[in-house]
Amino acid sequence: MSEQGTQQGEERLHSARAIVWARRRAALSTFWRLYRTQRAGLVGLAILIAITLLTVLAPLYTDEAELRASNAPGGRMESPSTEFWFGTDQTGRSILLMVIWGARVSLQVGVVAAVLAVTLGTLIGMAAAHFGGWISWVLMRLTDWFIVLPNLVLAIALVIALGPSRITIIAAIALTSWASTARVVRAQTMAIEGRPYIERAQALGAGHWHQMTRHVLPNLMPLVLASATLQVSSAILAEASLSFLGLGDPSQPSWGTILERAFDAGAISVGAWWYMLPPGIAILLVVLAFTLCGRAMESVLNPRLRDNT
């Protein structure tokens, strides 16, 4: 029985692609086995799954029409009641409903901006490491410049110049946050390129593109994914800050926009804590969850960071 199994396994591994996929599956299961030992990482993952479900399923258990100010069901700035668990805003809309729908904007901007930033950072980091020479010098100077500058100030300037919209916010956040990824990716690429199999590939006539996509990138992927996860949390915080400063997407409120409205409506001086608590807690939870996941991934990748070693 077991002999038959091995034989079948060998047959399956005949094509190169099958070998690659088997190796990837094995790597993934090892990764998951190690990730499972990170308690904080599991908590983060659970929070993320719960929030994603609540956000995606929002149309099933809430009524989007009540988001329109003209259609608001409650009175002005009501305190929490059984009907409105977290009270209402200055136009009578349920705060809880706004927070549930605000998740769509905050999460979308955060994830898309982080993916863009990490892609840009990976490309620049790889190019700087691979080509070396003056290209590397120019790219790293640019990277240092972006790392050092106050990125929120730069993002604000960009959004003002281009006009606030969902796309400009995403672009501004991505453009001001790729640099740390570029640095880490560059260092890792240099380490990978020192390995013998790259030399072998070069000797066999592999071009830049082939070396990068087939040999370097697969080895970078775990690091890039961990970096992207951490990047999402700072992107969500950046979006919240921009929206709070009045530079958010005007068409659909995010968590930051809700806090801006609370601030403008004088929720602080009337002590309307219910107006400010839910969006803030939502930001805190999501950012914390992404950070916990990212740190757990880093610990899996780097045994020196693992606890109790």
Binding site: L152, T181, Q188, S234, G294, R295, E298
Partner: peptide, 14 residues
């Protein structure tokens, strides 16, 4: 508001 890595430097190799 930089990315919050466990240690930004120690993720990468020496």
């Amino acid at each position: 508001m930089g990315k919050l890595s466990t240690t930004q430097a120690s993720v990468s190799p020496p």
